[in-house]
Structures are given as C-alpha cells and as structure tokens.
Design a protein around this nucleic acid. Structure first.
Lengths: 345, 345
DNA sequence: GTGAAAGCGCTAACAT
DNA sequence: ATGTTAGCGCTTTCAC
C-alpha cells in the first residue's frame, strides 16, 4: 500500500529507491538493461513496499497478458485430467497463467468459449476440438494456436500415435484368435474418431481381421451403455471403442444383457482414463501419454508466441502403449488354449 | 482493424458515429445513460468496425476484470466435475470468465496458485481448500471470497448437509443390522473430513453404533487401496469412507484380500462421483448436489463483488441424499432376513 | 546505464 | 444527454 492506500506502483518504488520509474520498469521487464547494483537497489525498494506489477497496465501497453487458454471438449471426461495437468505445469513453469474453458462436448459452446477467452490470452491450446478446420484456422489467424489430438493443415499440433496404437490392439486381438473386430464409433466431429476408424480399416487386413462399425450417441458412459444393443446385433467377438468412456459403458451394457466379457466378447478402449482400471472387467486400452501431450503442447505454443524457431514438422506424434487388462480374451470357440496371447507392439 | 492496422478503439467508433469517445464508452458500459437513438448509432458504428472493448484498458481504469478464480484442491478428483460446471455456467451467464486453478492436493501449491491468480480476478471461489483458516482470511482481505465444503469464520460459504448425510448413512447401516462403523479418514487439512468424523461420533450413539477411525495416506483410489490392510485389522462390518475415491480404492483392496462386499463388509462413500456407479460392487454413497453448490457459490460471490445485500447467514447448506447401491448389505451373522433395509433420510 | 515524457484504450469526474 | 479532459500503471522511444 502506498500513501493513497492503493497497491504500490513503479512510481512508489522509484521514489523510495531514488531512481526514475522507467528504471524500475526496466529492472523488472528487461533485467539485462540495468546495472546489477541498480537492480539490487530497485529490488530492495520493491520488496520493502511489497510491489507487484499490475498485469492490466502491462497488458494495455504491450498487448501481452502472460495468459494462455486451454479449451477442452469436455472437462468431465477424465481423458483431459492429464492434459490439463500437463499444460498447467509447463505454463506455470514459464510464468504463464492457464485459463481453462469447457466446450461441454458442443461445437457452438466451444465457439463461444473460444471467442470469449481469445482477447485475454496470448495463445490457445485446443484439446479434442469439435470445431471445423475452417473455424480453427480463423482462430489461428487471431492468436498463436496449438491443436491436440487432431491435425489441422496450417496449424501446429500434438497427437498420439493412433496407427501404432490400433496396430498393437489388432495384434493383440489377432493373437487371441479373433477374426473380425467391430468399431464403436465416437462423435462425427471428432478427428481422432475418423483417424482411429481409418487405421482400423487400413490395418485390419494386415492381421486378417474383418471390420464393422457401430455409431454411438455420445462419447460417454451412457452413450456406450445405449450402444450395447446395436453392437450385439452384429454378434462380434471383439469390439474396439472410440474411447474408454464408451468402452466402460459398453461393458455395463453387455453385463446387463448377460453377455460375458471377455469370454463372449472382448472389448478394447482408448486413452487409459481414470476408472478404466476399476470397472468390471478392467478395460484393456490403448494408453496415450496425456500429460506429455499437454506439456509438449504448451512449449510448442510458447515457441509460437515468442516467435522462436520451430521444428520442421508441424505435427508432433507421441507414442501410445497397449495396456492389457481383463476385458480381452481368446475368441469363443477358437480352439486356442492360450488365455492371454502376445500383447502387440 | 483501423487505419493503423490495429483493432478498433472507442475513438474509431466515435469518429465513425460522429460522437465523443466517452459517449461510446457509456453506450457499452452504462447503457442507461445514453438515449436509445444514440445507443443504436453507436452500435451500428461499432458493428461496422467490429469493435470489441479492450479488457486490459478497462481493467486498468476500473480495477475490475470480469474474471473470477476457482481453485480446486485437485482437478483430477471427479468430485469437482459438477462444481466446475456449476461455477462456470453461472459465471458465463453473468458475463464473467472463470479461471481454474489446481492445487494438486497440496497446501503450498494451493497458496502459490491463489497468489498467482488473485491480482487478475474480481473474486475467488475456494473448493475444498487445504489452506488454514488464517491463510483463507488473508485472501478474503484482498478479494471477495466464497468457500466451498468448508466453514471459515468471517467468510461466506456453501456446504452440503454433512449431518443429514451421515445420519442417513447410519440409519441405513443400522437398518441392515450393523452395530459398529469404521471411518476411513481423509486428509488432516480437510475441513469436510473433520466434519464427517465429528458427525459420525455425534450421531453414532443415536443408532446404537460404535465408531472407530482409520487414517489414509491420500484421498485417492490408491490411498483407499493402501488403507485396506489397516481397515481389515479392525474387523469391521461396515466402513464409511471420507469420499468415493477412498471408497473405491478400499473396495479394490478388499477384493484383493478376498473379503466379500457387502457380505462381509459394507462400504459407504461420499459425493457420488463419476465411477462410483460402475466400480464393483457399485458404491453406496452420500451424494452432494455438486453443480448447485457451484452455481450458488458463484452467485454469492457475485453479490459480494457487487456489494449487494447478503443473506443473514454466511453459510448456505444444501441437502445431501443417500444413494444406495450394492456395496452395503445386512451384517454378516445378524440373523436378519432383509437384504436391503430402509434407506434413511 | 539512466532519466524524461508520451501514450496504450478505457472510464469517470466535471462541465455544458 | 453528451462533450471535454485527466488519468489508471506500465513500457518505450528518445535524450543524455
């Protein structure tokens, strides 16, 4: 507090230290441009007064806020836990504050959220965005942008290695004697969904696996539960779900229909979220390095904001790993005696 | 963009509309103080230019940011899903942006997070804070503040009705023939933990229930898993866990120890989080109206920020509800024939 | 290396 | 009801 009972400003610090306000400013924002003794003197005065730079004033002058926005498609999807933690960790390390916005699995909601937060941030991370490429490019035109779990031409992104993940899952199922696999699909607007289905289609033949596809109403537990009927209609021996939420829901739906997993149907999910280890049976899943995706995304954004040199390739791909649990087993009537086969990649 | 290639300001709008900059300012921030025709004229000009108020400039002048901070003890605890959604929903309805900070279940972390976000917000909501009353009061001295799931003398807060919740759980267990109940405790720094244990102690006798207490290392699934050994040492017939995370962990620990639930031990949790319905067995739990807690907290904060009249009582208590699932059953050897008894309050 | 002064975009007296 | 004007606290030329 200064004499007027308001927080101290650089003027207060300058007066106490017997220097010019501009020097105080430099001491804080351009540490190199001030002599070390001057720096010490200013620091001492600032500490004595409890000075803290006013972010609004700095932002007004520089146009930078030291804040980045993270928009997630759905905060209540545990897949975002790791991403949130990762981004936040890297951001605070770099002196940035993270603003989190929730798109509530709705494209209009997401647009509104982005629009609201855009003016107040130096850059944006879009996680599992449901917006169109066009809309994303429009955002990128306004602020530095990094996209997660998606590739948008012209934008930088961080993704997990879908192909390797799908391949390991298929290898695993093939090893268990399965001859076909049904994909329980995610949202139309999800890039990852398209990518996973594509990989299934491309790689299935490699393992002699036929493929089928069933839609879901929402990438949630209840969506999976509701989809069980449609899945059963195809009488599959193995299902790969777009994500763990759907996988867990499907498990429940199958249990309700008294279909035994994995004896009658094997189920594989994606992401390895909270809960995939304690549902029944525990879910076999393709784990993504979520936290690393978050930190990498932030640093990439940071380089963009600071106009630092970038990698040549705009897409950073991080490895996935198959986590084998109890929801996958040998195909019913396959004659194989092995309960659990090779675990893929 | 204006002539200089920068975003339009009130000066650009004023020039186009042929009015004074202050009139433009008023048209946006004090809609009542301009004539309706003037408002229309300014709006038209603003739309034509694509004018958006500069938040930093406004904040610099007024000291208000139209942003509030929400600090949660742990974003990866699903108990916060509803709270986050609730706060965010109300905030955006009121034209506020929500800044989310994660304390990562650590008191120092929480202090840092609060300190970082405090200067940039008009008010703060602290959810399940692990800070001391003293530290919280220090925050309240700097900004309007609402506390969740906790009562801090001198501060406004929103809590769920612990006593009623505990009472309904005890009535349920008593009805199932249990004669004692063991409490699996949460973090020392948790106010809710103290409150729940206190209620158990106070209300136990009412139902002829003896009480015991076992500590946990962390209010997480792994904390509950690890605590199973200590719990078993007491040979309880019923356990009430501080929260569902611990409850789910305990369930797993008991399963590993081949103790059957609910046949040998009944388990009750708190919160009714994501996952408590699909763990095995599904967890009986005291559900809190999380989303409502969030929205109420925001509106209370809003009143604080706007210096509007407040309720006389600083603590708003919201009702809880017992959700009976499969983790509770009649006491082993109790002779009772009922599988499921009355469900309490 | 340090100081002086202008101005970022907005709001709020004050004046008319 | 609208215009004029003076800052809010900071950074950034431009001098020295």
């Amino acid at each position: 507090m200064n004499a007027a009972g308001r927080p101290p400003t650089i003027y207060d610090v300058a007066r106490l230290a017997g220097v010019a306000p501009s020097t105080v400013s430099r001491a804080f924002s351009r540490p190199g441009r001030v002599s070390s003794q001057m720096a010490a003197r200013v620091q001492a005065a600032a500490n004595e007064l409890g000075y803290r730079a006013n972010a609004a004033a700095r932002a007004l002058q520089t146009g930078r806020t030291a804040t980045i926005g993270l928009v997630v498609s759905d905060v209540t999807n545990p897949v975002h836990f790791g991403i949130i933690r990762g981004v936040e960790e890297a951001a605070s390390q770099a002196g940035y504050t993270m603003l989190l916005a929730d798109a509530q699995e709705s494209e209009p909601h997401e647009r509104t959220a982005v629009e609201r937060l855009l003016p107040g941030v130096d850059g944006v991370v879009l996680a599992s965005s449901r917006m169109s490429d066009r809309a994303i490019r429009a955002v990128a035109k306004q602020r530095p942008l990094v996209v997660l779990n998606r590739v948008v031409p012209g934008s930088r992104s961080v993704v997990s290695d879908t192909e390797a993940g799908v391949r390991s899952a298929l290898a695993h199922l093939h090893g268990l004697g399965h001859r076909s696999v049904t994909y329980l699909a995610g949202p139309e607007a999800s890039w990852a969904d398209g990518r996973r289905w594509r990989a299934l289609l491309d790689l299935g033949p490699e393992f002699g696996l036929r493929t089928a596809r069933v839609a879901s109403s929402a990438p949630t537990v209840s969506g999976g539960l509701a989809a069980a009927r449609d899945v059963l209609r195809l009488r599959p021996t193995a299902v790969i779900a777009y994500n763990d939420l759907l996988g867990i829901g499907l498990l429940r739906g199958l249990a309700e229909a008294e279909v035994r997993v994995p004896e009658q149907i094997s189920v594989v999910g994606f992401d390895n979220i909270f809960g995939s280890d304690f549902c029944t049976p525990a879910l076999t899943t393709v784990a993504a390095p979520l936290r690393a995706i978050g930190t990498e995304a932030f640093w990439e954004l940071h380089r963009l904001i600071d106009r630092q040199p970038l990698r040549t390739h705009p897409v950073l791909t991080l490895p996935t790993q198959l986590v084998v649990r109890d929801s996958t087993g040998v195909r019913a009537g396959s004659g194989s005696r092995r309960r659990k086969a090779a675990e893929g990649t």
